[in-house]
Design a protein around this nucleic acid. Sequence first.
RNA 1: GCGUCGGUGGUGGAGCGGUCAAUCACGACAGACUGUAAAUCUGUUGCCUUCGGGCUACGAAGGUUCAAAUCCUUCCCGGCGCA
Length: 394
Amino acid sequence: MLKFTIQKKLEGTLARAGEIETKNGVIKTPAFVVVGTKATVKALTSEQIRSLGAQVVLANTYHLYLQPGADIVEKAGGFGPFMDWHGPTMTDSGGFQAFSLGAAFGNNVSKVATGDEVSNVSATAGQLAKVTDEGVMFKSHLDGSKHLFTPESSMEAQWKLGADMIFAFDECTSPSAPYEYQKKSLARTYEWAKRSLERHEALDTEKQQSLFGVVQGGRFQELREEAARTIGALPFDGFGIGGSFTKDDIGTAVGWVNALLPEDKPRHLLGIGEPLDLFNAVEAGCDLFDCIAPTRMARHGTLHTADGRINIRNAKFVDQFVPLEEGCTCYTCTHHTRAYLAHLYRGDEMAAATLGSIHNLHFILRLVEKIRESLLDETFMEYKKSFIERYYKK
RNA sequence: GCGUCGGUGGUGGAGCGGUCAAUCACGACAGACUGUAAAUCUGUUGCCUUCGGGCUACGAAGGUUCAAAUCCUUCCCGGCGCA
């Protein structure tokens, strides 16, 4: 069902521009996937998502399974129709919650490591998720009820959620997990990949959904390459690259993986969405990215500009009667001033989250669009250099 | 006028003889956030500092005490009740 065409490759790198055809439309890649975990992009209406020019929306299986339940979403015709989004869709498998509700729970651990974390894989106190070979036992963060997620049950839930592209059930490990754990986990994720494929093929006899396998391996080259070879050899429609990196790894580790993955299938870098990371990931051969950062940071007052991030709540903005970002064509910037936004944020007004999310998503979506254009006209390296220099100058 | 209750840091409000520069909340000033447990979380928030500490503060002025935001006296201001 999924057709991926490469239109242009950037010589000397793994970067490429292309198109993915789904039954709900075409995705021009590289593309940023907007995250709508619970079948809603927080603070935005679906009309606003369309207006932003988003191409794909990704929802989360664990969250929709718990609320309102996969059966309800199935009755709605899938999460896309449920939320009135009629373009391409994806669902994550719930594998990330093995990390966010497991090893990371309450530990203030980010999936992007700084490099000096201490191992905490044995610290299970307070966790809501426990990983075994069978699957992941979750304790609902909503009501404490227990739920076992397995590769099979994840496929069944994702089948009901009805996205165009779905992910194999995997374990997203903590960046602080040691080699031994990563290796063990990787073997498990491989077994889960095969079980996911098997269950998916049984469910989706008419090939309505495309299944992506997930490459893990932490920060170890040997494991990343092994995962790329083994997962890459399975008959998936595309691949997700998941798990933990350091910021520097995003340029290197992702490249190790993509050098080995089948070239003719799309590659989705899971959960990455800061400007520098996007450039590095594209250069390293990724086609798709999803990330909650633009919307979460927007809700918290951190907004992107070409000159770097700003915190709109800062005192200096209260009397700046100019657009958030001069020249930005988003709704927020064409209608409102920094002073007004600062006022809304300081007053904890709900519109602040909406206007901030519109701007940040516009910024990232446009950034990835421009990255795509720069691949097509072979100006990627120049564009990357000029963007990075300006955005990260201090 | 009499009686009564109260006046604490930007705000509200604890404290009611020592461990109080003063719980806490809010506000303010910053920071973090990367397949969403997140409209969340963290730090700072009297002044000075060689970071050891020093100084000035709890309406005002006196007083008691080794020691007062805490007790006493007077005054000022506010709420309430009675005239």
